[in-house]
Every structure is written in structure tokens, then in C-alpha cells.
Nucleic acid binder design. Structure first.
Lengths: 360, 360
DNA sequence: CTGAAAGCGCTTACAG
DNA sequence: CTGAAAGCGCTTACAG
């Protein structure tokens, strides 16, 4: 008997329709659909054939309503030191997704680890697993520990997504984040574009950097590769600062500025610390030197609005968090395929478009 | 009696809980919640007080399931001339949203109008209204006709969102699109940044332009304002091309190139036609002139990848479509507040980040 | 191995 | 003006 649903012109197929067509009860159809066993091979085949023929699509609303059961997810990301911390941003996206999916029973348990202490990651992962989560989102900040954790998750058949940095060799549900090498390459191009070709440029790494190291390395590689390929004659300074202190920066950068010979026209910092350089530039009145850095933390926002920074490369951290949870949700609830390497856009932010840059 | 839901630690409030607390039936609670009348003032007040006290949040899943009714939306946008047309992009976003919301009963009827014929817009709007849509998304391409339509919709109390261009004076549910003026301002800044200060730049409008005119005007204003405010001494050519033909472009641009005096260093086209200039640059071997334009149509993508275009400003057309439908959905189904002027990000695309630029 | 029944939270037509 | 009941599509515990 055709379904009398008011919805749609071509009527929606319900398990009831399948049951009738197969001459079984809806309970049996459900057992087949969810592989709950206790069905003879014969009826199973029959039901599956009809499911396919009618192109049955389960009604997620009805399913979630009837299940009325929590789906626990775990999130493991670095602890944000303050409200301005980079790690607040993925968290915002995760929470937005959590709110939207609460109706479907998704419950998220957060576990924050200390970026200075590997053991906190491992113990956080243990705690997370104790809840028997149906999915995990984590940032593989400590590579070795993360690989181990990932292998364990594979064994336990718990799907997981990675954000911020990737574990290339690991088979995850999805990676959400930048192609770090390419973002460095882009930074090279931007700096090349806005500085005279006969002046030098510098890349400056902060030694006390607590961010993921493989990230920084790849950004630097990309930056250097750009100049190798496109402007090999450009003089390049590769600098490392042990300290974020302005006086220290001055002692490091002043020799390189050499206004007479090949003056320094631009500086690239492959992480969110570019605002330190901006402070130096301002205090020592070196305005005119072009600065490129990463991430929209508020000190950088201030510096870009003040005209001290030209470009900030942004990796959509909120989107990484949001899509990460969404990917888990789609996999677990809707049983959809996920994209393995879901690189987020490499966004270019200037003083002119920053006020319009937002995540949903 | 507390609810025994397995979900959540603080139990979800159901209408049943409210009914019990108020000493009425769930039918009465529903009548109050949906203002269906036929309830005494006294019980109404009592119920509303409890709703507020318990912070009741309706379960959208159950509601949609029980309603089992179509929610018709109408979409009115310009007809895409071919698959490469700009107008395919908002359509993609609209369709993505439509798919996600189909479970909730959202049904979308599309009405495409001809950008060369105002009357097709008016008749499309009439057809759209004949279906009694619960919400409308449209692009106010023809300003006068759109204002009239908007006023009619207000009268009929049909919520509507605008995409692509805005009707500032009209009270819509939401506008999704660029701040056109600011995007032109950004283009000015980018061109200024990548060209030597002692060379000239040009803005080129295509006269046969069929895109929304107010858009173009504001982009141009923004561009000119940038130079007024930041580099008033820069020589600026304001050009208008009656033809997209390369030979015509050559006759127009060659006099301006003046390699001897103040050579032309960059050209800005405030719409998607920048690829025509790229073709001219290539054919006449003027490589080295910086080009900035709009929109990721495939001819522009090709030119930016070939290194002929430096920057494309992108207005996230897919996102405009997606969020437009989502806003209608939230308003109609979830009764949420919408943001009136929801400017989309002004994205900067280069050869280096274009392959990573994607919409969900 | 299979079916009938109750229930998820909300909506609505009907009886009073 | 109000309540009891049936139903949306799916899930599950129980009886056979």
C-alpha cells in the first residue's frame, strides 16, 4: 500500500513499506538494517533487495527520537592559557557543533592537556577512553604519543578525527587543518609581492615556541621553497629568537636591517608571535617593514588594525573544530563517508577584510 | 514526576512535564505554546510561567516528525547561462542546505529570472507567491522591482532573505553578501601594496556589464576611496570598456601603458571579467602588470593559476545561498532570531591558496 | 527466527 | 475551554 505521507511528491519510503513488500514485520526489517542478527539468510536477502530497489533512506529524526540515547564523543585538545589563546577557537567551533547536534543525542566530554607535559596527553586519553566514546576528536600535538593513541583507537575500532596537525601515515576518519607547507609557501609569495626585489627578507622563529614543531618546520620549508623556486636571488635571513623580549629582538634584528646595503623589507614569523615583532617595529620606529604572521589572536588583530602587520594567514580553527565534530556525527549517526584529508582554506587577512572575517 | 530520559544529566523538559506541573493536559500546553487560542487566560499564564521557569526547549526532531508537513520555500535568482556562470555557486549552496533540511520538511521551489529582462523577475515572483511559501530567498537584482516585491512580502508577512546585493532601506529577515564598498577598498589596498608607488594603476569597468549595477558602483567607490585616503598622489586611470574583445581592450589600454613616463603597474576590474584583461596581457605580452578582479569562475581560475592574475576577491556565493536557506529555516522551524546584515567574508585568493579554497 | 506492542516528544482532530 | 487518543517513523524488549 503506498504511503500517504503529505511530504514530497514521490513518497518517502518507510520501513513499514519495506516490511509490507517483503511480507515480514517491521521488527524484522530493523534487524536486517542494523545487522542485529536473528534473521534467516533468506528473509535477510529479500529485505535487502527491497531496501535497495526502493532506495530506502532512514529517517534520522525518527531514529534519533526513538533511540533516545546518548552518543558520547571525546575531545582532546591543548589547554587554553587564557581567553586570547589560539586554542579557544577550535573549542568555539566544537561547542557550536555540540549545540546543534545535542538534539541527536551527541554528548561531548572535554579533556584538556598541557602543551608542556606529554604525560598529560596520555592520561587524558586514558580518561577519555574510560567513557567508551563513540568517536574522538584530538589534536596530535605530541607526535609519538599521538601515533600510539591512534593505533590503540584503531584496535578498539573507535573512529577519530585529527585537527590542527596531521599524522600522515595514520588511517584516521579525517584530518581537518592546513597544508602547513603550502601556507608557508603562500606567505613567501605575499612577502615577495609587497617588497622590492632588491631588498632582503627574513624568517624569524621563536625558540621558546610551544606550538607543534612539525607544523613550524613545514611552514618554514614552504616559505623557503617559495623563494628557491621564484626568486632565488633574494637575500634571505633565517633567524631564531630565544626570547620574545623587545630588547632581545632589537639586538637580533638591528644588524640585519642594514638600511645602507640591502635593507630588510619584510619579516615572516611562522606562528602567532608576529605581534612581538610588531611591538619591536613600533618601539624602534622601523615602520615600513612588511610583516606576515599567523592566526587571529587579539594581539595580532590589534597590530594588523594599527597597520603594523600586513597579512595574517589564518587556518580557520573554529571551522576545524566544527567540522571535526560534524564529521564524527555524520559517520556515527548518518553512516556517511568522510573525506580523509580535509584541508581547510588558507585565508589571507588584512586590515581591510578583518572585520568581515567570521566563522558562521 | 521527574522525567526518566536517559539523555543528559539535567533532564530534558518535555511538554508532559509542563502539563503535569500545571495540572493540565499536554494538548493545552501545546495550544499555549503555539498560540492556537481556546485557552483561558488563567491557565495560559500558569503554563507560560512554568515554561519560563523550567526553560523549556521544544524538541525539533519530535516536532518535525509529528508535523510531517511540507514547508515550502521559494528561491528567486538569476538564470545561470552555463555551468561556469557565477550564479551556479549560490545555487550549489542552496541545494546543499535543501538536502540537509529535507528531513525537516523543507521543500524548495526554484524560479530563475533573466538578467536582461526585468519582467521575468516580476512574473517569477508572482509564480513564487502562488505556492504560499513560508519563506523566500531572492537576489534583488533589479532594485525597483525588488523594493516593490519586498514591500508586498512584508504586507503578506512572508519572511525573506536577500543575497548578493542588499536593499538597505528594506526590513528583511537577513542580507547575506559582501559589503561591496569595503571589498573595493580592499582591492585598492592590494593593488597599492604590490605595485611601485611611482607607477599608475587603473580601474576598468566593462560597459556591457550585466551584473547588478549598484554593486559595481560601490566597489568602484571603495577602490577610489582607498587611494584618496592612503595614496592621493598615485595616478589613477578610470576606464570603461564598451567591449570585451581583446583588440578593443588593446586600443583602450595601450595608450595608458606609457612605459616611458608613469607606466601602468596594475589593473582592477570590479567584476568577474578580469580574465578578459588577462587574455589581453598575455596576447600582447605585457606580463608584469598586476591584475585584481572578482569571483572564482573557471576562466578566472585558469588565469590566476597561469600567473596572469594576482588576486581574486571572492564573496563566498555558495555560503550566501547556504546561509540564506539556513536563516529561513531557523526562523520558521526553530523560531530563532536572524542577523539582519550578515556580511560574508571578503576572501583574498591567490595562485597559492586557490586549490585549498572550498565551501564546506 | 519472527511479530505485536509500547514508547521516544510533539501535534492534531475529535469529543465533550 | 479542555482532555484523551491516535499518529509521525523508528527502536527494542518481550513473547512465542
Amino acid at each position: 500500500m503506498p504511503n500517504k505521507s503529505k511530504k514530497g511528491n514521490n513518497p518517502t519510503i518507510r520501513i513499514k513499506d519495506i516490511a509490507e513488500k517483503a511480507g515480514v514485520s517491521i521488527g524484522t526489517v530493523d534487524r536486517v538494517l542494523h545487522n542485529r542478527g536473528e534473521v534467516s539468510e533468506k528473509t535477510k536477502k529479500k529485505v535487502l533487495a527491497i531496501v535497495k530497489e526502493l532506495n530506502y533512506q532512514p529517517n534520522l529524526l525518527a531514529s534519533s527520537l526513538a533511540l533516545k540515547k546518548e552518543i558520547p564523543f571525546a575531545v582532546l585538545i591543548p589547554k587554553a592559557h587564557d581567553d586570547d589563546s589560539y586554542w579557544m577557537k577550535p573549542l568555539d567551533g566544537i561547542q557550536k557543533a555540540a549545540n546543534e547536534m545535542a538534539q541527536y543525542g551527541i554528548r561531548i566530554k572535554y579533556h584538556f592537556f598541557d602543551m608542556m607535559d606529554k604525560s598529560t596527553f596520555t592520561s587524558a586519553m586514558e580518561k577519555a577512553l574510560a567513557d567508551n566514546p563513540r568517536g574522538i576528536l584530538f589534536s596530535p600535538y605530541f607526535t609519538n604519543e599521538s601515533v600510539k593513541a591512534a593505533e590503540l583507537l584503531q584496535e578498539m575500532e573507535i573512529p577519530f578525527v585529527l585537527i590542527d596537525s596531521n599524522l600522515k601515515q595514520i588511517d584516521k576518519l579525517s584530518y581537518l587543518g592546513h597544508d602547513a607547507q603550502q601556507s608557508g609557501y603562500l606567505a613567501g609569495r605575499l612577502l615577495d609581492l609587497c617588497t622590492p626585489k632588491d631588498q632582503s627578507v627574513a624568517i624569524l622563529n621563536f625558540g621558546k615556541e610551544t606550538e607543534n614543531l612539525s607544523h613550524l618546520k613545514r611552514r618554514k620549508e614552504g616559505f623557503l621553497t617559495y623563494f628557491e623556486q621564484n626568486n632565488p636571488n633574494r637575500e634571505l635571513h633565517v633567524l631564531k629568537s630565544e626570547d620574545e623580549d623587545v630588547e632581545y629582538l632589537a639586538s637580533l634584528l638591528t644588524p640585519v636591517l642594514r638600511k645602507d646595503k640591502m635593507p630588510l623589507a619584510g619579516i615572516f614569523v611562522p606562528n602567532s608571535k608576529i605581534y612581538r615583532v610588531a611591538t619591536f617595529i613600533k618601539q624602534y620606529e622601523h615602520e615600513g617593514i612588511h610583516l606576515i604572521g599567523y592566526d587571529l589572536i587579539s594581539k595580532n588583530v590589534e597590530a594588523i588594525k594599527g597597520g603594523l602587520i600586513d597579512f595574517l594567514v589564518c587556518q580557520r580553527p573554529e571551522e576545524q573544530g566544527y567540522k571535526g565534530i560534524y564529521t564524527l556525527f555524520e559517520h556515527v549517526v548518518a553512516r556517511k563517508e568522510a573525506i580523509k584529508e580535509n584541508f581547510t582554506s588558507i585565508d589571507i587577512i588584512t586590515r581591510e577584510n578583518i572585520d568581515y572575517y567570521r566563522f558562521l
